[in-house]
Lab assay of single mutants.
Amino acid sequence: MPSETPQAEVGPTGCPHRSGPHSAKGSLEKGSPEDKEAKEPLWIRPDAPSRCTWQLGRPASESPHHHTAPAKSPKILPDILKKIGDTPMVRINKIGKKFGLKCELLAKCEFFNAGGSVKDRISLRMIEDAERDGTLKPGDTIIEPTSGNTGIGLALAAAVRGYRCIIVMPEKMSSEKVDVLRALGAEIVRTPTNARFDSPESHVGVAWRLKNEIPNSHILDQYRNASNPLAHYDTTADEILQQCDGKLDMLVASVGTGGTITGIARKLKEKCPGCRIIGVDPEGSILAEPEELNQTEQTTYEVEGIGYDFIPTVLDRTVVDKWFKSNDEEAFTFARMLIAQEGLLCGGSAGSTVAVAVKAAQELQEGQRCVVILPDSVRNYMTKFLSDRWMLQKGFLKEEDLTEKKPWWWHLRVQELGLSAPLTVLPTITCGHTIEILREKGFDQAPVVDEAGVILGMVTLGNMLSSLLAGKVQPSDQVGKVIYKQFKQIRLTDTLGRLSHILEMDHFALVV
């Protein structure tokens, strides 16, 4: 994948999101292997301009796509893939009243899908469409860049269908997702969380590099694949309309690839034109409109599966009536509230959605109805927002919020430890010299600072030695090549209790 991002070429006709291997024109390309080798690009942008032909009021008969309808489940399912879809609609009884809503608040519980998330729908649909058009064949390999849930859905379907599955996901995604993927037989590649989507090191860039190296491999490409919004247009939206008897006044959905909100909203605009569509985008993402909503100094966020630093091709923002931004604290607070007060075992993005819903639905009156999409299960986040310690460490809970008995030293300040200034190293000294210094002084790690004293990161003896043994660096290389740029900081005025929580999850903390 090139470091400079080429513009994806656009073909003359058809839909841009065809499933299957992508040609340089962004659509299915038939021909000899030699032709494909000559024409197939190194990668295709996940934010390529959409060429979708959908228009409100256009006859369904003019759609270029294969459409399906929700099917009634048999008493005995032939395999677990038949437990994807037909998820329950559940009334939220307490939270709406707590925040003064007059309307009825309903939750579409997508964590009841077989793999635990709304992404099971698009995973199965992308595979079925690729099999139907002859792209996927027995023994082929599926590769997908994902925040985890699409990966789980694909790995689940691949396990049943017999495909090899490789999932490329950023490091910030939970260990629970990784464990589930491994249990399903998927191979996992992790990428830096802070890598831009168009960087060769991003999950998108690495996935395309693997595709170019592995024979008979395919990126189904949830960011561009029409099967993504079509899955929701054909099934999720129809289920909502049936469950609500066609009567709903507002739908609120958090947005990642945009397939969920695009597919549902398009069908609702056709069948229930008075329904307002509300999009939820986390602070630090750029999906919301108008652009002024996205202006923030924050560039990272903890909530998973929603928000991006690019506009995915499948996201149709014209069908969203209003956007709201959400933050991590309210997302996790509301997710825990949904679990504790409503018994809905949902993930953090569901918290984002409901946090926005109780604001947006203030305009609705008694007798009206708001539906929220709860995308995934708490299963993926047992060591994250479900953990009091994690919430404390991230600053989303305060010590006084917890009532468990603490040891005698818990409320003492870090400054009472009488710490001395640490050994520091410059980023320009060599790895070999740094190892000598650390061994001589008896230290395992040291902060790396520039000549102005600005902290650049941390270097550890173990990481340097393993990097040297693996051949990633040489003793003569500058130590700046092996620094940890993500590390926890703590102030002298913070409590030892807070430091204790940090050290339970990290090997060190830097006192500043």
Score class of each variant (00 low, 15 high):
149 N>Q: 02
125 R>I: 03
166 I>G: 03
221 D>I: 01
134 G>N: 08
143 I>M: 06
212 N>C: 13
179 D>N: 04
142 I>R: 01
184 L>E: 02
114 A>R: 06
43 W>D: 02
187 E>K: 10
244 C>V: 13
92 I>D: 04
155 A>E: 02
50 S>I: 08
15 C>F: 12
183 A>S: 12
18 R>P: 06
203 H>I: 03
65 H>L: 00
127 I>A: 11
104 E>Y: 07
175 S>Q: 12
17 H>A: 10
243 Q>S: 06
78 P>L: 12
144 E>V: 07
4 E>D: 14
54 W>D: 06
215 P>A: 06
111 F>T: 05
249 D>P: 01
38 A>E: 10
188 I>V: 09
184 L>D: 00
205 G>M: 02
20 G>C: 03
248 L>K: 05
63 S>E: 08
128 E>R: 03
214 I>E: 05
75 K>D: 02
208 W>E: 08
157 A>M: 09
69 A>G: 13
106 L>T: 09
129 D>A: 09
232 H>V: 02
24 A>K: 10
140 D>H: 04
154 L>R: 00
211 K>M: 15
61 S>R: 13
249 D>G: 12
228 N>A: 04
21 P>A: 11
110 E>Y: 01
254 S>F: 03
16 P>Q: 06
41 P>W: 10
121 R>S: 00
139 G>P: 06
203 H>V: 01
251 L>C: 07
20 G>S: 06
46 P>D: 00
55 Q>M: 11
186 A>N: 03
256 G>E: 01
67 H>K: 10
92 I>S: 08
93 N>D: 11
247 K>G: 07
144 E>M: 01
136 L>N: 00
165 C>E: 01
233 Y>F: 12
78 P>G: 11
29 E>K: 15
43 W>Q: 07
174 S>G: 04
60 A>Q: 11
149 N>C: 00
239 E>C: 05
203 H>R: 02
135 T>H: 11
258 G>N: 02
179 D>W: 00
181 L>P: 01
117 S>G: 04
228 N>L: 00
79 D>F: 06
116 G>T: 07
199 S>H: 09
116 G>E: 07
82 K>H: 10
34 E>A: 09
240 I>H: 00
48 A>E: 02
44 I>T: 11
5 T>N: 12
71 A>R: 10
159 A>L: 05
24 A>Q: 13
